[in-house]
Design a protein around this nucleic acid. Structure first.
Lengths: 245, 245
DNA sequence: TACGGTTGTCTATATCAATAGACATTTTCG
DNA sequence: CGAAAATGTCTATTGATATAGACAACCGTA
């Protein structure tokens, strides 16, 4: 079902990049699990109907990403292939959801600021436009590999100082708890996909043209009052979402 | 927040394509709604820090997609900007979910076949590997515009002839009803994202490098017995998913 | 009607992407 | 060891991509 077929000539995206995407996808879906390595360059060139040099460019890009490692005389070994799963439900929590899948997770606070809610944030948090809100910019890692970058907004009146608490605890759940909110639930999640921009490429260690999964999510307290609105940008080749109904 | 910034030089993806992606995204998020048109080529060139000819290539690609239309002497008008919303819940139904968003929806059956369940299909439908299943290949349109292509599998013993019924009714819900299943629910949905392959580009009228949202979904009857497993590939710039908890 | 602002077209040049072929270097295995 | 198989490196050629500049054609409006 996941067989690799010939690429068709396409303008605008370099052939080597298209091929790199195909191979990355094949690795991630376990096509080469038996051998633990990618087929020889000459074989790939034949499969894709391109020159061996073009395949080499693709493999060089994947090596740069740390997905494969070429060894002269032996072949090209697969270094990484896992895809993290994020269950999306009423009890969605970022770090908890990863507990069984990664040895080590980190949340880095890039910055935080207090500002006035714009129309979008006001709508999601159900406050007046212009109401003071706190914005947090974060990047989350799993096993030293960046997984998502996000921007979150909180009502400033209720969650004063959440930035510094988050920096120390590296957890929204813990930060909420420290501010007197012991429990919260995921109310709404919107999911889209897009290309990575230059900020994504930098923060998530992606390569140009990479694909992102983007969520816009709103959490409420147990009374249904919005406590957090966040936009998260996930590296699509490292994650999948699961919704259980 | 959605301001367009300079593009950074990236290898592997042509500049004009990166810029086309940015402009498409800006249009879809309503940045130019006030004027109904894209800024002049010279302004865009300045914003992105590229030559005007490069912007023209990008706009030509968007015109090809039917998203904008250039008029000499006036400017470049926006033709389309909507993004269809698909609510994902226990009651997820493809066509019903679109009723308020599109004037006209169609489901085209590309083909159907009876085959033996492979490991993946068997796991999702909870049957023995090798069990006969019916496979349907479909493309769905909204207002003459292709939105998703999909492959669905059904247990053959229970849903014999579902292919022909689907071709006539253009609805899974109706086909199930005709075969004695009056109601069903969405049990699980997995969401990933990836680049479009050549089949996607053809069936969904996409351009190379386009982004897809991919769902793997399983429906059950009211007793929890799997009745359908499907993989759907959505044009990411035309849809978003919403999960309400 | 004349003008400013906008898209359309043309020429020229430099760099990147892709193909092609040849050969070196390294590992594995009989 | 020696051959086969794999990756690494080099040269050369062609077409696509991007920049630069100049000017034509067209639209709206003062």
């Amino acid at each position: 079902m996941a067989g690799i077929k010939q690429v068709q000539r396409q303008t605008g995206v370099a052939l080597w990049r298209q091929i790199a995407d195909r191979i990355r996808e094949a690795i991630s879906s376990g096509v080469y699990d038996q051998t633990g390595m990618v087929p020889p360059e000459t074989v790939l060139a034949l499969q894709f109907g391109v020159n061996r040099h073009t395949v080499r460019s693709a493999l060089a890009a994947l090596a740069q990403e740390g997905i494969v490692r070429a060894v002269q005389g032996r072949g090209t070994l697969i270094e990484r292939k896992e895809r993290l799963n994020f269950p999306i439900s009423r009890r969605t929590r970022f770090t908890d959801g990863l507990r069984d899948q990664a040895r080590e997770t980190h949340a880095l606070l890039l910055g935080h600021a207090e500002e006035a809610a714009d129309a979008e944030v006001a709508r999601w948090l159900r406050v007046e436009q212009g109401t003071p809100v706190i914005r947090l910019e974060t990047v989350r890692d799993a096993d030293k590999r960046p997984v998502a970058r996000g921007t979150s907004w909180f009502p400033a009146a209720r969650f004063a100082g959440i930035g510094e608490i988050y920096r120390k605890t590296e957890s929204i759940t813990k930060a909420f708890a420290a501010l007197g909110l012991s429990d919260y639930v995921r109310a709404t999640t919107e999911i889209t996909a897009a290309h990575a921009d230059s900020g994504d490429i930098a923060d998530l260690e992606l390569t140009p043209g990479a694909v992102l999964l983007i969520t816009k999510a709103m959490n409420t307290d147990l009374e249904g009052v919005p406590v957090q609105y966040s936009i998260s940008r996930f590296a699509a080749d490292r994650v999948q979402f699961t919704i259980e109904n």
